[in-house]
């Protein structure tokens, strides 16, 4: 395209004058520099699977909020005249063995499952950032002790501990969230610590330290924004894990107590009825899977978008 040839002798003499272009034009040729998060978003947006995860998640959240209001039923009232009904205009997702409307219960369950997932992630984040941040930033002996303690706790098999706690403690939402976070934060703490250690010695932090910035300020201004990426990924992957664990516990009969309905309890109640009333399993199972799917692809998408190695 740029190859336009001209006979050397045809060149008009005035076009061979020096012109000064450098000062104003030299910078124009460089690609516009994007801010980090804008860049991440650009790359994330190109990942269609991850984007579909976001759309799916927004739909699920919307239905969790408004779904139960769309029907004249509530999640706990039995109706023995309409037991195990197939999906119809009256009951969109059918009814269960006590005649409760499954559409209402599924979205009520969405609230509980998502609440468990998000709470677990937020609590993990809270403890993990504090623990890992302090350990990494202070370093030395304190770091050694804190991380050893975490290692020992980490070695305790997660699900066994959760089961044990659920057996002993009073069943309920709070218990479940406590049980899940009791060792869940360790992963977050390790990641935060690793990031802090890596960043601590980088020039810009050393520079602000020599300039006399206070520890708090360094943490807030430099470390936390820079560790956001891996933290975000870990959180997105904690949520589906928690929802999974909830379903697992429900199946063992350690779920939230009736008449509360989580997707896990609904699915495990629906299992034995699978042969005759498949919709009782189908709806909760589908939505558990869709939710976990959405979070997983979002997490993958974030990881790819945040990985600077792929930056071209």
């Amino acid at each position: 395209m740029s190859k336009q040839h001209i006979n050397i002798d045809d060149i008009p003499i005035e076009s061979l004058e020096l012109v000064d272009v450098r000062a104003d034009d030299a910078e124009k040729i460089t690609r516009p520099s994007l801010s980090f998060w804008k860049d991440v978003w650009m790359r994330f947006r190109k990942n269609k699977l991850a984007l579909s995860g976001v759309v799916l998640l927004i739909l699920l959240l919307f239905m969790a909020i408004f779904g139960p209001m769309m029907t004249p039923y509530n999640y706990y009232e039995n109706n023995l005249e309409a037991v195990n009904e197939a999906p119809s205009a009256e009951h969109w997702f059918g009814t269960d063995n006590l005649g409760r409307d499954l559409f209402t219960r599924v979205w009520e369950g969405a609230r509980i499952s998502l609440f468990i997932g998000f709470s677990a992630a937020v609590i993990d984040l809270f403890i993990g950032v504090i623990w890992g941040g302090i350990a990494g930033f202070r370093g030395g002996r304190l770091d050694e002790i804190m991380m050893r303690a975490a290692d020992i706790l980490w070695a305790v098999p997660y699900l066994l501990l959760v089961i044990l706690l659920m057996v002993v403690l009073e069943p309920g939402l709070t218990t479940m969230i406590i049980a899940m976070t009791i060792t869940g934060w360790i992963n977050m703490a390790r990641i935060v610590r690793g990031q802090v250690l890596q960043l601590k010695n980088q020039e810009f932090v050393l520079a602000s330290q020599t300039l006399g910035a206070k520890t708090n300020r360094i943490m807030n201004k430099h470390l936390i924004p820079n560790t956001m990426g891996p933290i975000l990924i870990t959180m997105t992957l904690t949520i589906p894990n928690a929802i999974f664990t909830e379903a697992f516990l429900s199946y063992l009969g350690l779920g939230v107590p009736a008449p509360l309905a989580s997707w896990g309890t609904m699915a495990s109640e629906g299992l034995p009825a699978m042969r005759y009333f498949p919709w009782r399993l189908f709806f909760p199972a589908t939505f558990i899977s869709l939710t976990i799917f959405a979070f997983n692809v979002i997490g993958d998408g974030l990881r790819d978008a945040l990985d600077p190695k792929l930056r071209k």
Partner: peptide, 18 residues
């Protein structure tokens, strides 16, 4: 792989069984 990760094992087991 994503399906395998997203579907809880008790559902997979029941579907296989059924």
């Amino acid at each position: 792989a994503v399906l395998g990760i997203s579907v809880p094992s008790f559902i997979i087991a029941s579907v296989f069984q059924y």
